[in-house]
Structure formats: structure tokens, C-alpha cells
Amino acid sequence: MSGKLSCSAGKCVNNINGLCSANNIHVVGSEIHSSKGTECETFMQRGFMNAMSNFTNMNLVGEFKQIFSRDSIEMSPEIKCEAENCVYNADRLCSASNVQVYGPDARSSGGTQCETFKEH
């Protein structure tokens, strides 16, 4: 399943104007009970080497569509999720239509969290 993903982790190589440009992301935090226990494992700090190694996970079609659409979010990554206690976890895929990853000061995945997490 794909969701529209907004992200405040401005130092992430996948963040383009608050949207996630990754094709696939992975949220971890298997037995947690709040968003604070989740992490976006796909986070990589901005830099040339990380940009090059992340090239195969870029959502190029979504990025191209987004250039021409200011009214809607066109970049929709597949969101794999290990948060077993989240109501949106459907067989380890996120079923939420809109996802918010938080991490304005993040320098690693440990500084991020899925704000959309909602316990069963």
C-alpha cells in the first residue's frame, strides 16, 4: 500500500520541500505503544555519498508529477511498517492515507518518529 508521506526531517537526503522522495520507506518499532518508539529507518543524512547510494530508491515518477502539481501530494512511497501495535499496520504495510514523519533535528533514524502511529 502507498501513502502520502510528509516529513519534517529536513536533513534527510529523501526530504524535498517537506515531502519524502523515497520510493520505499521502512518504519521500525515492533512492540511500541506510542509514536516515540517508532523510527524511519530509511533516514539518511544529506550528503553526496548518501545521495548516490540512495539513487535506486528515488521515486522519480512521483517527483516528476509533483513538479506539475502544487495542489496535491503526488509522491507516495510504499511504507513498510514493523509497528505491530499500530492500527494502520496491515501485514507490515502502512494503510494510512497520509503519514507524517517527525524529525526536524534528526541526524540519524533515531531522531525520527512516525507521528501517524495510533495504537489499537
Rank of each mutant, 00 (worst) to 15 (best):
T38I: 02
D91L: 08
V28A: 14
C81M: 06
Q66S: 04
A96L: 07
E39N: 09
S8K: 10
N98Y: 03
K36F: 10
I67P: 00
A90W: 03
G3Y: 06
D71G: 07
R107F: 02
E82V: 00
M49G: 10
F43S: 01
I79Q: 08
N15D: 13
H33D: 09
V101E: 03
A22P: 08
K4C: 02
A9Y: 02
C81D: 00
N17V: 12
N17Y: 10
Q113C: 13
G10A: 10
E115S: 15
M1V: 05
I16M: 11
N89D: 02
Q100P: 00
C40L: 10
S35I: 01
E63L: 15
N89Q: 06
D71R: 15
S76Y: 00
C7Q: 02
N23H: 02
N54K: 03
S8C: 03
V99S: 03
I79D: 08
K65G: 01
M58V: 15
I32S: 13
N15K: 07
N14D: 02
Y102A: 12
A9T: 04
G111H: 08
A83T: 09
K36M: 04
P104W: 00
F117K: 01
A96P: 09
E74Q: 13
Y102I: 15
E39G: 01
G47T: 09
S53L: 01
C86R: 06
L93D: 10
Y88L: 02
E82K: 05
G10Y: 08
S97G: 08
I73R: 14
S72Q: 07
N17L: 15
A51K: 11
G37Q: 07
V27F: 01
L60D: 07
G3E: 04
S109F: 11
G110K: 10
A51T: 03
G103Q: 10
S6Y: 12
V13C: 14
V87F: 05
D105I: 05
V87T: 10
A96F: 04
D71L: 12
S69M: 06
Q66C: 05
T112H: 11
T112N: 10
E31R: 09
R70I: 02
N54M: 11
M1H: 11
K65R: 13
P104G: 12
A106V: 05
Q113L: 12
L60T: 13
M49C: 08
E63R: 10
P104M: 08
C12F: 00
N17C: 13
N14C: 11
V28P: 01
T112A: 04
K65C: 05
R92D: 13
E31N: 14
P77C: 06
I79M: 13
R92G: 04
K80R: 14
S30Y: 06
R70Y: 11
Q45F: 07
N50R: 13
G3L: 02
G29W: 06
E78C: 01
G111K: 04
E119K: 03
E115M: 15
A22G: 07
A51N: 14
M1N: 13
L5T: 10
G47V: 06
G103T: 04
S108A: 12
M75E: 04
V61K: 12
A83H: 00
N59K: 03
Q113A: 00
Q66G: 05
S108D: 14
Q66L: 06
